[in-house]
């Protein structure tokens, strides 16, 4: 497979006012293949935007380099920049100009002009479905509309590679769907390579050909979703909410005795309890959550339920297959959310 982007030991260290360093990105190396959708998945502050900013030539890496279509972003910035389109995390548009005027302006910044520019503008306006509002000022647009113009502006130069930094932030489900479909169309109809960042597991799962999980400025895992879940040997999880049993130990022992249950976790749901009573005193909870790890959750379900039902009342059951959330949890010991 042909490589579109290659980063070699990219590192960015910011200095705080008191001159203590912030290691935003620590020696990141990865490749993105031509024609794939590659997601950088990571929580807020993981270093996604900083990484993208470096490989779009916006900020100078403290160390390392990135190559876009073979051009070094440090040595051959101009050539590299011709190949890329950027959709920043913010709405990077002039609010006082119309959608069309914005596109004209940014088109000019790619040295487009005359008929060619007009054609490109019409093209992206149609692609992002903006015909109706193209002559309206950006500051009259809804959040979703602004996002679409924001994307359109990144497509004007017909880039081979497009960076999209959380393009669905603050967008309603309908517009989000539209944007995700757009990403697929860019790959499938225009053979573009897409570098997509998000902190939403669902988006990364749905869109990506490959995913890089980034945390604290490091890529901690990289591959297809299947590879990632396989690599950590993630198991299915049976998550069962129960009324709190009087004899916890017996129940746990019984579950742990099952040959296919590799691990059983037990958690008393204090939070819920506090919540319900509206007070702050930590009183004994009435509910608990059991998590049973096993290879094939669906098969084991009946047997596990049988064991539990003999001892305690069940409130809810869920079979969770390994997902990126589990991968992240497994690698960092933290949940991806919050």
């Amino acid at each position: 497979m042909e490589t579109m982007v290659e980063t070699k030991g990219l590192r960015k260290t910011f200095m705080r006012k008191d001159s203590t360093p912030i290691h935003a990105v620590k020696a990141v190396s990865f490749s993105i293949y031509r024609g794939e959708i590659f997601s950088l998945l990571g929580p807020n502050g993981a270093g996604k935007t900083t990484t993208i900013s470096m490989i779009s030539g916006l900020i100078e890496p403290s160390e390392g380099d990135a190559f876009i279509g073979g051009y070094s972003i440090r040595q051959q910035a101009r050539q590299a920049k011709q190949l890329i389109g950027v959709v920043p995390q913010e709405i990077a548009l002039y609010p006082e100009l119309t959608a069309r005027q914005n596109l004209w302006f940014f088109g000019r910044m790619y040295s487009l002009r005359g008929k060619e520019l007009k054609m490109r503008m019409d093209e992206v306006i149609e692609f992002m479905d903006l015909e109706e509002r193209q002559h309206d000022r950006i500051d009259t647009f809804s959040g979703g509309m602004k996002r679409r113009v924001n994307i359109a502006a990144g497509l004007l130069n017909r880039p081979q590679l497009i960076y999209m930094d959380e393009p669905t932030a603050g967008v309603d489900p309908q517009n989000r769907r539209r944007i995700l479909d757009t990403v697929f169309r860019l790959r499938d109809e225009y053979q573009m390579t897409v570098l997509y960042t998000t902190h939403l597991m669902e988006e990364a799962e749905e869109l990506s050909d490959r995913i890089g999980i980034i945390d604290h400025g490091e890529i901690i895992a990289l591959g297809t979703q299947a590879e990632l879940t396989e690599r950590i040997g993630a198991e299915d999880r049976l998550v069962i909410e129960v009324k709190r049993p009087s004899d916890e130990q017996t129940l746990l022992d019984a579950l742990r005795a099952h040959p296919q249950a590799s691990k059983v976790e037990y958690q008393v749901d204090h939070l819920k309890d506090i919540d319900r009573r509206g007070g702050s005193a930590v009183t004994p909870a009435e509910e608990a959550v059991l998590t049973v790890y096993c290879q094939n959750g669906r098969k084991l379900l009946a047997e596990v339920l049988n064991i539990i039902e003999q001892q305690v009342e069940i409130s809810s059951i869920e079979v969770r297959q390994p997902d990126l959330e589990a991968v992240f949890l497994n690698l960092t010991g933290r949940a991806l959310r919050d």
């Binding site: 950027v86 920043p88 995390q89 709405i91 990077a92 910044m109 502006a153």
Partner: peptide, 12 residues
């Protein structure tokens, strides 16, 4: 603040 400057800088 609106990242317009960044957009400009990431163009050639």
């Amino acid at each position: 603040n609106t990242w317009v400057l960044q957009r400009l800088l990431s163009s050639p």
